[in-house]
Simulated assay, not measured.
Amino acid sequence: MTTWITICDTCKLEGWEATGATETDGERLATLVEAAAQVPLRTRRVSCLMGCSHGCNVAIQADGKLAYTLGRFTPDADAAEAITAYAALHSASETGVVPYRQWPEGVKGHFVTRHPPLPDE
């Protein structure tokens, strides 16, 4: 079962406008996460996860598993490594639950929401 990392590519951290950057913070994080992700992980970009006060935002999802939204990342290699490391643990989990003691340090404090899997009809 494939675990997806969905990255908001429109996220802008506070003060972004003053930097003169041509890429949003979300685009920068997306590029780094895409480079760090390895099979069986998949990535995709979306424009707006509606977590603007928590930017930079990502969602970790797979069919039949708990899904998580994480935010408040800086667009750097350490964040990308932590995100992909957590997503790999999510992928290896039957339910999407990863015990806290296994969480990469870089995702602690970044969880925003948890969503139960959709029911089978």
Score class of each variant (00 low, 15 high):
Pro119Val: 00
Leu32His: 04
Gly55Arg: 08
Thr74His: 07
Tyr100Lys: 14
Pro117Met: 01
Thr6Trp: 11
Glu81Asn: 04
Asp76Met: 00
Thr69Ser: 13
Cys52Tyr: 00
Glu105Gln: 12
His54Pro: 08
Pro75Phe: 02
Ala79Glu: 10
Arg114Thr: 11
Asp78His: 11
Thr6Lys: 03
Thr84Phe: 12
Ala30Met: 12
Gly55Trp: 03
Arg42Ala: 06
Phe73Cys: 13
His54Ile: 12
Asp63Asn: 01
Glu81Gln: 14
Leu118Asp: 00
Val46Cys: 04
Leu89Ala: 00
Ile5Glu: 03
Glu81Phe: 07
Leu41Val: 14
Gln38Cys: 06
Trp4Asp: 08
Ala79Cys: 13
Glu23Pro: 01
Arg44His: 07
Ser53Tyr: 10
Val112Cys: 11
Cys11Thr: 14
Asp63Leu: 00
Lys65Gly: 07
Thr24Val: 14
Gly15Pro: 02
Pro75Ala: 04
Tyr68Arg: 05
Cys52Phe: 02
Thr95Pro: 06
Thr19Asn: 13
Ala85His: 10
Glu17Gln: 11
Cys56Ile: 15
Ala80Pro: 09
Arg101Met: 09
Lys12His: 03
Ala77Leu: 07
Gly51Ser: 11
Val46Ser: 01
Thr43Val: 12
Met50Asp: 15
Leu66Arg: 12
Leu70Cys: 12
Val107Tyr: 02
Tyr100Val: 12
Leu49Ile: 06
Ala62Gly: 09
Arg114Phe: 14
Thr43Gln: 06
Gly51Ile: 06
Val98Leu: 02
Val58Met: 04
Thr24Phe: 15
Leu118Tyr: 10
Pro40Tyr: 03
Ser53Gly: 11
Tyr68Glu: 04
Val107Leu: 11
Ala21Tyr: 05
Cys56Gly: 10
Cys11His: 08
Trp103Pro: 12
Gly96Ile: 09
Leu41Met: 09
Glu17Lys: 14
Ala18Lys: 15
Glu23Tyr: 07
Gly106Thr: 09
Arg28Lys: 10
His54Lys: 12
Met50Gln: 13
Glu105Lys: 15
Asp25Tyr: 07
Glu23Asn: 10
Cys48Phe: 02
Glu105Gly: 06
Arg42Ser: 13
Gly96Asn: 09
Arg101Asn: 15
Pro117Asn: 00
Ala88Ser: 11
Ser91Phe: 15
Leu118Glu: 02
Ala37Ile: 07
Cys56Leu: 10
Val39Trp: 00
Ala59Trp: 15
Ala36Glu: 06
Glu14Thr: 15
Val97Ala: 02
Arg101Asp: 13
Glu94Ser: 01
Lys108Gln: 03
His115Trp: 13
Tyr100Trp: 12
Ser47Glu: 10
Ala21Trp: 01
Thr19Met: 10
Lys108Ser: 10
Gln38Glu: 02
Ala79Pro: 03
Glu105Met: 14
Trp103Asp: 04
Thr2Gln: 01
Ala82Cys: 00
Leu70Ala: 07
Val112Gly: 01
Thr10Met: 05
Gly96Pro: 14
Ala88Tyr: 13
Asn57Trp: 06
Ile83Lys: 01
Phe73Glu: 04
Glu121Lys: 15
Glu105Asn: 12
Glu94Ile: 05
Cys8Ser: 12
Gly106Ser: 15
Val112Lys: 02
Ile83Ala: 07
Gln61Leu: 00
Ala30Asp: 14
Asp25Pro: 11
Gly96His: 13
